[in-house]
Structure formats: C-alpha cells, structure tokens
C-alpha cells in the first residue's frame, strides 16, 4: 500500500525526469513554464480531487454492493458491458464527474470490463459534449459521421477488457 518506490510511481517520475531534461535543452523558459503549469494544475485540482475522493468513499459505502456486483461485476459478462455502454453517454461533464463515480462503482464491486465500456461510451458518445461543443462547432453532419464511426467502440473496448481480465486476471485494486 502506497510505497514511494512502487513501479507505478517510478514510471511516472521516470517520465517526469525525461520531460525535465527535454525542457531544459529547449531554448526559452520552457522548464520554468512547464513546472509552473504543473504546480498550477495541482493547486487548482488538488482540493477538488480531495473532496471527490471523500465523496466516492462515502458513496461506495451506500451503493448496494449486491446489485452493483450483479449488474456490473466481472461475472455479469456481456450484460455488464451493455449496461456500461447504455449508461456512459448520460454521464454529464468531464473527468471531474466521471472518475469519482467510476471509483465509487469500482469500490462497490463493479467489474473492469463494464467500467471500461462505460468510460469509452462516455468519451465517444457523451451527449453533454456532443450538444455543447460538437454540434455547435463542427455541425450535425460531421457529428453524425463521427458517431456512426464510433458506434461499435464502447462494446468493443468492454470485450477487449474482458479478454484482458481473462488472460491476465483482474487488475490489482489500486487502493
């Protein structure tokens, strides 16, 4: 639990070091700019992430685990993936809303394939973004073209995730 020298942490910080070296070699104040942006992001998002974790922790306590597990659990198979696809497009807003909810569902026993289908559906068919941005900016025809092109992606992602889980086992619960 939570050691500093775990692979996940090492990979991220290794990439940070590479980016730092690249930024240092570039002309101008790239290094300073980048570090400032990172610090800025942390200051602006840190408190939100903190309360999001709090909310997710409490919500997962009251989510009915038997129902979540039966509908979205690994054993729910196709059904879980389809439910994920159906629910995803209705999730409002960006990652700020979706990620904590997915975390709460994960804690309450939802399976990885269903959640990956849900996240893919939210990303590719998200109604909120389609109506707020895509149709106003790109027009209805382009939007229709993109939607038709990505109609199969969420179930496909769920299916691929189910295959991964079958071959590699379920991912270790991060926390």
């Amino acid at each position: 639990m939570g050691g500093i020298f775990e692979p996940g942490v090492m990979i991220i910080w290794g990439m940070v070091v590479v980016a730092l070296v690249i930024a240092m070699r570039q002309p101008g104040a790239r290094l300073r700019q980048g570090v400032m942006r990172g610090a800025d992001m942390f200051l602006v998002n840190g408190p939100k992430i903190g309360v999001a974790i709090l909310a997710a922790g409490f919500i997962s306590q009251i989510l009915p685990e038997d129902i979540v597990a039966a509908w979205l659990g690994e054993s729910a198979g196709w059904q879980g993936i389809l439910i994920g696809c159906a629910v995803g497009p209705f999730f409002p807003g960006g990652p700020l809303v979706i990620m904590p909810l997915v975390l709460a569902l994960l804690k309450a026993g939802a399976g990885v394939p269903a959640l990956i289908a849900l996240l893919t559906a939210a990303a590719t068919w998200g109604l909120h973004r389609i109506f707020m941005f895509e149709i106003p900016m790109m027009g209805g025809r382009f939007t229709a073209l993109r939607l038709v092109s990505s109609i199969a992606l969420p179930p496909l992602a769920g299916l691929l995730a189910a295959l991964l889980v079958q071959v590699l086992g379920a991912p270790a619960p991060g926390h």
Binding site: V9, I12, W13, M15, V16, A19, L20, I22, A23, L31, Q33, G34, V35, M36, R37, G38, A39, D40, M41, F42, N45
Partner: peptide, 8 residues
Amino acid sequence: GGMLLAGL
C-alpha cells in the same frame, strides 16, 4: 508526478 509531467 502526473501533473508535473502534464505541465512539462
């Protein structure tokens, strides 16, 4: 680390 990387 992630945010530092994103900024960079």
